[in-house]
Simulated assay, not measured.
Amino acid sequence: MFSNALKKLFFLIIVKPVVFIGLGVNLFNREKLPDSGPAIIAANHNSHLDTMVLMSLFPLGQLPRVRPVAAADYFLRNRLMAWFALRVIGIIPLDRQGQAARDELFAECRAALERGEILLVFPEGSRGAPEQLQPLKKGVYHLAKSAGMTGVTTVVMHGLGRSMPKGGSMPVPFNCDVVVGETHYPGDNATTFIDTLNGAFEEQLAQCLTRRVEE
């Protein structure tokens, strides 16, 4: 209960003001976000800010059930960061070093979905070059299929790669877009599903105002 209260307070006092006032977010299709789990949000990944922006889209009362899936080697690398990531943000640490079998890799994720939680995943696997999509990995397909064909809602963010790119330590105020897409369900073919997500990402990127300005 203490962790949940701390999480809500952190987002109320710090994160939401930074995201919606400091950065300035153009938010499209907020109503398409799932309001309950089990559900998976699949988003592109360009910035340290991505997770905070995604979580800020949810009401404070829903935040305890919103769980980012994040790299264990990065977020658990020291005691202070591990405490903050686990107790305040509520991450589900993921071993991306290839040392765990698939069933073991997703065990905690499936357990969270069974509890009716909403997972935030980045199918690209890691942050890429600012505002550039990387090839999507098939892990999101296997997770969604193994968890009772859980729906995957696509979200595209644009502009955060300039606000706080890989290697940056302080956010710079740049206007950014967040476009929520449709919910997709895994079928019997991983490649087909990933192609569907890729197509959705491209369509949502085309709606971003900041991308049109750059062009």
Rank of each mutant, 00 (worst) to 15 (best):
N198Y: 07
A147K: 00
V152C: 03
L143W: 03
P171K: 12
M157I: 13
Q132Y: 04
N198G: 14
P186R: 08
T154L: 11
A190K: 01
G167H: 04
V152R: 02
D195S: 13
V156P: 04
S146K: 03
P130V: 15
D177K: 08
G128K: 12
H184E: 06
T196L: 15
T192Q: 13
G199L: 14
R127M: 10
K137I: 05
N175D: 11
T196D: 13
D188M: 05
T196G: 00
T183L: 12
Q134V: 05
V180E: 07
I194F: 09
R162E: 11
H184R: 06
P130C: 14
G181S: 02
F174Y: 14
G148K: 01
F193V: 00
T192M: 10
G181M: 07
V155A: 11
G187K: 01
H184I: 00
M170W: 14
T196V: 06
G159H: 06
N175H: 14
L197Y: 13
Y185M: 02
V152T: 00
N189Q: 12
D195L: 03
P130D: 03
G159A: 12
N189M: 07
V140Y: 06
A144E: 05
V172G: 00
R127L: 07
R127H: 09
T150S: 04
G187M: 08
G125E: 08
D177C: 12
R162I: 11
G128T: 13
S146G: 09
G159Y: 06
G168S: 15
L197H: 10
V152K: 06
G167R: 11
K138Q: 12
D195Q: 14
G125P: 05
N189H: 11
G161N: 10
T150F: 01
P186S: 05
K138V: 04
K137H: 14
C176E: 06
V178T: 12
G167C: 10
P165H: 09
D188Y: 02
A144N: 01
G128Q: 08
G181D: 03
S126V: 06
T183W: 11
T191A: 15
H158N: 12
T154V: 04
L133R: 13
S169I: 11
G125K: 08
V172F: 02
D188G: 13
I194K: 08
M170N: 04
N175T: 14
T191M: 08
K138D: 13
A190P: 01
Q132F: 01
G199V: 01
R162W: 13
K138N: 07
F174C: 15
M164I: 14
M157A: 10
S126E: 09
P186M: 07
G159W: 07
F193D: 08
I194L: 10
S163I: 15
T154E: 07
V155D: 04
M164F: 09
L133Y: 10
H158G: 01
M157W: 05
M149N: 12
V179W: 03
P135S: 04
V180G: 00
G167Y: 06
Q134W: 14
R162G: 01
P173G: 06
P165M: 01
V178I: 15
H142V: 01
Y141N: 03
M157Y: 12
G167T: 09
V152D: 07
S146T: 09
T183Y: 09
D195T: 03
T192V: 12
L133V: 14
G167I: 07
G125V: 07
T153V: 02
A190R: 01
A190M: 03
P135C: 00
G168C: 10
G181T: 04
